[in-house]
């Protein structure tokens, strides 16, 4: 990460959905930065707010959802939330782009894949039909699609899931954006294809010098790809740290639980541990700490006082009362590893 201003700075981001039944605070006070060329992972269960955070960065939140006043998103020195619609549209796909989770449905069935990659060049570079097509074929070849000039003429349904994900990556990286957001890019794919797609993403990202914001629920992917991790729970970042630091000494009980729930090669444990309970709905977070209902270490302070982010070590922050109570923390960690 560069020492000057980061590529992306998100501060106090809140996205609320104003429904008839009340307000769902899907994202509630999220702050983080992404440096140029850096890979940052956002980890969390379904409903933790990670995908909504990603869509908010592109300003693609649909009503009744709304990015609340007071949120700040600065990208390349620009205040994205103050930007008019048209310049924001020109930013999408050119400076910030996104790879979606579902390669089966993220492509339009009535156009060839080459046409759809070329469309991005037509939107942003004002390229002619022939130029755009040539760029598309070249980009498809770069994503490792053999006979790219032939495959470009295929319709989405003629390609496998892995191939389609390559097409989506080609679309997202065609303009060499400064930031690529990838929302669970490998979740819908076969395990054998996942590693290839991650490799491809990393190679193309390096080549273009792009930063990568990787949204996943898979710590294996995090370890493989990211330099820093944000763990999200209940619409908040509950812990953020460099990858090694997080794996070595997770400070938040939720993070610790997620790590223990991960299968590990050569582990002697017979059963995987699970975190009891589920994420509560975003319209009904518990008072105080949002994780307390599922936390094995919760005590009365957790119900009355919402924890604020506290520094565990330089660059390592956790939103947990345990951080400020070393005695309890020691008891909790020994209890957990016993």
């Amino acid at each position: 990460m560069s020492d000057s201003t980061p590529l992306l700075e998100v501060r106090d981001l809140a996205v609320h959905f104003h429904g008839r039944a009340g307000v769902a605070r899907a994202v509630d006070g999220v702050s983080f930065t992404v440096g140029a060329g850096e890979t940052v992972a956002i980890v969390g269960e379904s409903g933790s707010g990670k995908s909504v955070t990603a869509l908010a960065l592109l300003r693609l939140i649909e009503p009744p959802g709304r990015i609340e006043p007071g949120s700040v998103i600065r990208f390349e020195g620009q205040d994205l939330l103050a930007l008019a619609d048209e310049p924001m549209r020109r930013l999408r796909g050119r400076r910030i782009s996104m790879v979606f989770q579902e390669p089966m449905t993220a492509l339009n069935p009535v156009f060839t894949v080459g046409d759809q990659v070329a469309e991005v060049a037509r939107i942003h570079a004002g390229a002619s039909r022939a130029d755009a097509w040539a760029r598309a074929v070249q980009m498809l070849a770069k994503t490792g699609i053999a006979d790219a000039d032939k495959r470009a003429r295929d319709y989405p349904h003629q390609l496998s899931g892995g191939m389609r994900q390559r097409v989506l990556i080609a679309m997202a990286l065609l303009m060499s954006p400064a930031l690529v957001i990838a929302d669970e890019p490998t979740t819908a794919l076969d395990v054998t294809i996942q590693a290839q797609i991650l490799d491809l993403l990393r190679t193309l990202q390096r080549e273009a010098g792009s930063a990568l914001l990787l949204i996943t629920h898979d710590f294996g992917v995090v370890a493989e790809m990211a330099q820093r991790v944000l763990v999200m729970y209940g619409g908040q970042v509950v812990e953020s740290a460099p990858v090694r630091e997080l794996f070595a000494s997770a400070a938040h009980p939720y993070t610790a639980g997620l790590l223990r729930a991960m299968p590990r090669m050569g582990a002697r444990r017979e059963r995987l541990e699970a975190i009891p309970g589920t994420v509560p709905p975003a319209s009904a977070w518990p008072s105080g700490c949002r994780f307390r209902d599922r936390c094995p270490f919760a005590w009365d302070r957790c119900a009355t006082e919402a924890p604020v982010p506290a520094e565990v070590a330089p660059g390592h922050v956790a939103r947990c009362h345990l951080v400020s109570e070393p005695a309890r923390r020691a008891a909790a960690t020994t209890g957990a590893t016993a």
């Binding site: 796909g93 449905t105 492509l107 339009n108």
Partner: peptide, 12 residues
């Protein structure tokens, strides 16, 4: 739907 959203995310 997904492909329209993907297109919007790429500047359509």
């Amino acid at each position: 739907g997904d492909f329209a959203r993907a297109a919007r995310a790429l500047g359509a």
